[in-house]
Design a protein around this nucleic acid. Structure first.
Lengths: 225, 225
DNA sequence: AAAAACATGTAACTCGTTACATGATTTG
DNA sequence: CAAATCATGTAACGAGTTACATGTTTTT
């Protein structure tokens, strides 16, 4: 039972679907906010799930074009119900390049606030678009949306709205002058600038001697809880 | 340049660190909110990054215990700065089992609201703990936290607070009776119950005949935008 | 004296993605 | 009639995880 399997079973549970249907549904629909599948993982799993008795597959006529539909067996319905009953794993960490870049920003770019504002404005644009798409989806007159899907949708909406507020506040803050570190008992901010300058060399050219071991004598105690 | 590489370079940029340091720092520190690394990916990449000239490694005496520290070269500092300048990829989709389960909840568990409330209460507990940990971190008197790391931390805090509010609202809603689907123009809610009943069989035992292709004649039009 | 934490590293494995292959039908 | 879309499938690849192997030092 791979992690994609419950998604496949869940999609089929809504209606007997083809592999292609599932891909499209996830791209355009609600569950796609929380998972994505590629054909390369869908089709092999459909075969496996059929071999293991979770689904049955049958050809459906699609005016000449071949089309394989899949339906859950009793075992498949049971597996889905069991998976839903299992306590969901806590999503950790929140993989997000923007946040990761923020964590390392000072070390790598110092007080280059302009580039960071550009990143944030791009993100604002993307999140706004996603929010609009997501608000339109339950009103498209087509998709099946249960009370529970709507709750999931509410989560995504709430999260995006909070993100947009954070972006506004952050851009405002970045338009003011830099504030200096929030906490820096070991004076790392200063040391980072010095180490970078040493690596590049005083005249701006790379300095090969700055790469020998002995120069790194300013060892920093790592954090131990 | 693998996706873990900028994280390694970013950690080293803060202070010359060992592979072990990075693992611990990510587990206990701020960047760990947004990325995790295992030894199996750290050590091989440290060798590779040294071979490619991004870092230099040197033995540091750690009272008898061996310890390899790593420092950025000019090329390494430059690679980090370049990576930070690149527009960050939009994090899509938000992989979250709880949300995925909500999407499929009705199909698999019908109106079993008790189990769902249990999931939400568990999540509330975990998110509260993370929030408390995360609020304590910038006051531990040790970690280096730049203005920008603090902004990332603010994001995580904002997001968790929004999530906790959503959990409260959702639990309250789930204590009321079920509402029925938000949007269901094809009558799928009804069909799902019928299909599940057919798969299990009327008497509760699995019905093998319900698994033949012909019975699935109630084909549902897939969504096409 | 044992267990936990410190510290580095390798090899096998697993899962998912990318790229490729094929072919029918609809649309411009 | 060419291009886009529909539709299914396979094979190679890649990147990260898990498990294993090894040895030291500190804590209980």
């Amino acid at each position: 039972m791979l992690s994609v399997d419950p998604v496949i079973l869940g999609m089929i549970a809504m209606y007997p679907a083809s592999g292609y249907d599932m891909k499209i549904e996830l791209e355009k629909g609600g569950a796609g906010m929380f998972s994505a599948l590629t054909f390369g993982s869908i089709y092999p799993r459909l075969s496996a799930l059929e071999n293991e008795g979770y689904i049955v597959s049958f050809a459906a006529d699609n005016q000449g074009r071949r089309r394989m539909l899949h339906e859950l067996t009793a075992k498949g319905w049971q597996a889905l119900a069991d998976w839903l009953t299992e306590p969901p794993a806590y999503p950790l960490p929140m993989r997000d390049e923007l946040l990761l870049k923020l964590s390392f920003w000072y070390s790598g770019r110092g007080d280059d606030r302009a580039t960071l504002i550009a990143h944030l404005e791009r993100r604002r644009q993307q999140s706004r678009e996603l929010l609009h798409y997501l608000e339109a989806w339950p009103k498209n007159g087509f998709s099946y949306i249960s009370e529970y899907s709507m709750i999931a949708l509410n989560y995504a909406r709430t999260r995006l709205e909070a993100e947009l507020r954070w972006i506004e506040e952050t851009i405002t803050q970045l338009e003011f002058p830099p504030k200096g570190p929030e906490q820096d008992p070991r004076g790392l901010a200063q040391r980072i600038r010095e180490r970078r300058a040493a690596a590049y060399g005083v005249a701006g050219q790379p300095d090969p001697t700055a790469q020998r071991g002995d120069e790194h004598s300013t060892a920093v105690e790592p954090y131990r809880a």
